[in-house]
């Protein structure tokens, strides 16, 4: 691994100042589970690595206030998966966090890192999209809030400016009962990169949201405004039409060695159907529990 300058700012202002003055030659280090691989293989060659884990504003913390769950940028997957609030309100996010890598990886990989790498296969992206997350970013001109649906640009690129960093992720607690699930396809049952990663939610109002990744340059979010998918009495044919429309954005790479485009598309459809069914079941369970 090539050497670099290492900075460990202890305030957000210092971090932003470093980013602002060194910009493109820097790399932010959160969990490091991706960055350190890239430092070693030479695909990342920063002049400076900025370790953000000692910035108080980014600290690993999950708190709920006024119907919004705020997740500190450096919250690791293991904590996300185990957190009671996340599991209660955002079960699919907890599920996604629990399948990222091994225990060792989940103890290091952060929520901000997972989305800032902008890997199309990022497992937390589909649930964050489905749950309407907002990315809180800080830069030289203060902070701004970016809807997650505007965050991913393409593989490896987000809408963050070079001098901005993610401080936290906000998740609005669903106003109505919601059933949701995260599913993925991998080449083996043990930890693996997803060849399809998908999240589906259904709420009491009959709105189905579906987000999927690893089948194109960025994760995609779709919403069924017709309420057909959530309608138990709607005919299967009608549901298929809606689902097909939702998958129109998928364009899996032909170059990938992990799965062929045909297989990914077939699995996207299969997981979509399975996820929808599970989401509806979970919604019904919650209704039952409330009744």
């Amino acid at each position: 691994m090539r050497t670099f300058a290492y900075e460990r700012p202890v305030s957000l202002a210092d971090a932003v100042a470093l980013l602002d003055s060194h910009g493109p030659s820097t790399r932010l280090l959160a969990g490091g589970t991706d960055l350190i691989i890239r430092l070693r293989d030479g695909s990342a060659r920063p002049g400076m690595v900025i370790d953000v884990k000692r910035i108080p504003e980014l600290c690993p913390e999950i708190r709920e206030r006024d119907g919004v769950l705020t997740i500190g940028a450096t919250t690791v997957m293991a904590d996300l998966a185990a957190n009671g609030l996340v599991r209660r309100h955002f079960e699919a996010l907890a599920e996604a966090a629990s399948v990222v890598g091994s225990v060792q990886i989940r103890n290091r990989a952060t929520i901000a890192g997972n989305i800032c790498n902008a890997s199309p296969a990022a497992d937390t992206a589909p649930p964050l999209l489905v749950y309407g997350a907002v990315v809180v970013a800080a830069g030289p001109h203060g902070s701004r809030r970016i809807p997650i649906s505007e965050f991913f640009v393409r593989s490896g690129l987000t809408s963050l400016e070079p001098n901005e960093l993610v401080v936290a992720i906000e998740l609005p607690v669903p106003a109505s009962l919601t059933g949701a699930v995260h599913l993925r396809r991998t080449r083996r049952r043990g930890h693996d990169l997803a060849s399809v990663t998908l999240c589906c939610s259904v709420n009491e109002a009959g709105v189905t949201r579906l987000a999927y990744g690893s089948v194109g340059p960025k994760p995609v979010l779709e919403q069924d405004e017709t309420h057909v998918l959530a309608n138990p009495s709607a005919p299967d044919d009608a549901k298929q039409v809606v689902l097909e429309r939702m998958f129109a954005e998928a364009s899996p790479s032909k170059r990938s060695m992990r799965a062929s485009p045909e297989y990914r598309m077939a699995m996207l459809r299969l997981l979509g159907s399975r996820a929808m069914r599970t989401a509806i079941e979970r919604l019904a369970e919650k209704r039952g529990a409330q009744a």
């Binding site: 490091g32 589970t33 350190i36 370790d51 884990k53 091994s102 225990v103 060792q104 290091r108």
Partner: peptide
């Protein structure tokens, strides 16, 4: 493996296991 896949370098840091190949010593 040096990519966090094999776990041969697993150690405990503040009570939690990590792949020590994917953590800088300064961290």
């Amino acid at each position: 493996c040096l990519v966090g896949e094999c776990g041969a370098c697993t150690v405990m840091v503040d009570g939690r296991i990590v792949d020590s190949c994917l953590m800088l010593a300064v961290e």
